[in-house]
Design a protein around this nucleic acid. Structure first.
Lengths: 157, 157
DNA sequence: CTGATAATGAAAATCATTTTCATTCTAGTG
DNA sequence: CACTAGAATGAAAATGATTTTCATTATCAG
């Protein structure tokens, strides 16, 4: 990186609280990536994150964005999703976004992705009720559940 | 193909019933691919299908297996799944397998994939109850639902 | 049988992601 | 404050699944 990635923040004085408390060494690249994720409403592809990050620092490389996202993901700060088009997209963790647990409805016509929350079982906590159902019926311990519903949104239907 | 792919079956006398009635022109390659899918219990990767197919006909190419699976998939004879390891796997359609609608439980430890049927809502028809819930709440028309549950199976848990 | 059309296979092209490797930073330590 | 082992970075090369290209071969309606 041309200008050095520490850029005087010492031990996270300027940024880095979230990263440090997650046990991630705060660097400029990581901060920028996390900041982009934090300020985006929904999900972003790696390429999109790169674009955003480069608005602040041209020199950041694609590889580093991949690595940073992977790191944020393995530390639970961002979710990694796959909407079936052959590339990963990332979004802020449910906790950090304040959205709470949700799944996705993906329109095959316009491509729009909207959040799905609640369920016919428990209006609030779908994952919870599925988990206990699965535990009881299969003795399988659910760690992560991913539901993708493909179809037509209200606009396209 | 060295020996010609019709190999004397005329209009599906030997095989090809299923394919013909689905509007797919029956060829040796397609029949072999479909036959492999039919006789396999669960899901197979493209490479695995190729292996099996080549036990009957060495000359079959990988490209053709890709194309055949895609064709069978777009005609509803096989399902195309993604267990998150970067490659597609295919399995016989729920109708043809007689399994009925099901989702998957994927163990992150041993990699085993087991079928998930039923739900806390409707013991028999999970997808159905989700569909109506989604239609009512979001006015979204569900065409295909994919649920992947990652965790630990009873052996590994 | 025969020609128009479709299917096939090998090799090349794609494309997202990962790896390699030389360089640059960072966080202590003295 | 200088120094160094270890971590992070970026560019380029490698990977690996899937797709495309294109010349060849097979199919089937007439």
């Amino acid at each position: 990186m041309r200008q050095g990635y520490g850029r005087g923040q010492g031990r996270g004085h300027r940024w880095g609280r979230q990263l440090e408390s997650s046990g991630i060494r705060p660097t400029l690249a990581r901060e920028l990536v996390f900041s982009v994720m934090e300020s985006s409403e929904g999900h972003l592809s790696v390429e999109e994150v790169l674009q955003e990050v480069r608005k602040s620092e041209e020199g950041i490389g694609l590889t580093t964005v991949y690595r940073s996202l992977e790191l944020l993901h393995s530390n639970g700060l961002v979710k990694k999703l796959d909407f079936g088009d052959g590339r990963a997209v990332f979004e802020l963790s449910d906790t950090l976004s304040g959205k709470g647990p949700h799944q996705h409805l993906i329109c095959r016509s316009c491509g729009q992705v909207q959040d799905l929350t609640g369920s016919p079982v428990d209006k609030e906590d779908f994952a919870g009720s599925m988990k206990s159902f699965i535990r009881e019926k299969y003795r399988f311990t659910t760690e992560n559940m991913e539901i993708k519903v493909y179809g037509l949104c209200s606009e396209c239907g």
